[in-house]
Simulated assay, not measured.
Amino acid sequence: MRKRVSLKDIAHELGVSTAVVSYVLNDKYEGRVSEAKAQQIRETAKELNYTPNQIAKSLKKDKTFTIGLIIADISNLFYSNIARYIEDESKKHQYNMIFGSADENAEKFNELVQVMLSRQVDGIILAAPKGTESTLEYLKDQYIPFVLIDRHFPSIPDINTIGINNFQASYRVVEHIAKNGFRKPAMVTLSVDLFHMRERTAGFKNASKELLNILKPEVVEIDEEVLSGEIEDRMLKLIKDGVDLVYFSTNKIAMEGLAVLVKHNISVPREIGIICFDEADAYKIFHTSITFVKQPLQQIGQESVELLISLINGNQSAKSIVLGTQIIAGNSSAPH
């Protein structure tokens, strides 16, 4: 087995002390070592394939330099994309990441939390499914650093959260709809009891009443387990009933709905307009450019890691960060 390169090996190669090498590789050399010498030490470490001893480092600093990430559903493009940004940001701060997907299952989520804690992660970033309030309360009571992303649990105050204003995002969708001349929109969403999804629906309903004078806004809720089987009939009925635009509340629903339109050669936006919540690369292959609500995924990833590290380092104050969204207009909602 090849011998592991140590700080002593680098020091011997350059004729300097081990302490000087340690200062440079731990970014504590300012005022002690010249920039030219620091660069030389870094280059030599790279040439010798030096890698830090994480076990020794964690024992010395009482940290494992590992972050846990538990997302609600890996099949949702929103979470797979945001996981990438969180991993990238973690590396910038010299943290490794352990990843798990709860598949919107509370029991699996609870098990993953225990796995993370057994691995002695320094903190956890969570997108918690419904029914996990007791686990979040446990983490809070045990002073385990964690940040909740995308999801919101009003019953648990004073926890660190990062997300968007879903009500406002949907309200702005209807503003866009009204401005472009659509008068009879419908929203297609999942039949789930999640706060952020309820807020997304409430924003659509309120705006439809206030801006379009619709007394009873059309909202179609479909159980995710039967989404593929039911959405075709639901979409065709909406079109038959004279709906002139459909607003899909997630990109998962949008992909199913767009497939129905392609199958039946339904023209967008001439026969029906389309707006989707969240983006997806697959939209690019649709024959019409798709209007979608863009969430600041990179910013959510960066802010969640920075906030978590702040908690790990002893910051006890709870923080709720609400970020804005954008409507990226395509031809699918062009003036009607």
Rank of each mutant, 00 (worst) to 15 (best):
R119F: 12
S208G: 02
Y171Q: 11
L212N: 02
V305K: 11
G324H: 04
L323I: 11
I159D: 01
E303P: 08
E175N: 06
K63L: 15
T44F: 00
L236C: 06
S58Y: 01
Y283F: 15
L48F: 11
E225I: 09
L194P: 01
I222S: 00
E175L: 07
L190V: 09
A102V: 08
N105G: 01
A186Q: 07
Q114A: 07
Q168S: 10
I290N: 12
H264M: 07
D193L: 05
V121F: 14
E43S: 12
K60V: 03
T135W: 12
I124H: 13
L212I: 02
T132Y: 06
E111C: 05
A207H: 00
M116H: 09
F167V: 00
I162D: 13
K60R: 14
I41E: 03
N96G: 11
G31I: 02
I312A: 08
S249G: 05
T161Q: 08
D62K: 14
A106H: 02
N53M: 07
I98N: 06
F292T: 14
L117G: 00
I74F: 12
V226L: 05
G203L: 01
K28T: 05
V262K: 15
S317K: 12
A318R: 04
A45R: 04
L211M: 14
Q39L: 15
Y138C: 03
I82M: 15
S249R: 07
I41H: 01
E230Y: 10
A11I: 00
M255T: 09
F167K: 13
I222T: 08
L308C: 06
I300M: 13
V219N: 00
A128D: 01
G229W: 05
L14F: 05
L59F: 07
T325A: 10
M255K: 10
D9L: 02
E133A: 08
L307N: 09
S310I: 01
L297Q: 15
E225K: 12
N76Q: 12
T161C: 12
L212M: 04
G324Y: 04
E137D: 05
K240E: 15
K284W: 09
L59T: 01
Q54M: 14
I86Q: 05
N265K: 14
V192D: 01
A19D: 04
I300Y: 11
A11G: 00
S118D: 15
D62W: 07
H12I: 10
T66W: 06
K57T: 04
A329Y: 00
H152T: 10
M97I: 09
I239L: 14
S228I: 00
R172P: 02
Y138R: 13
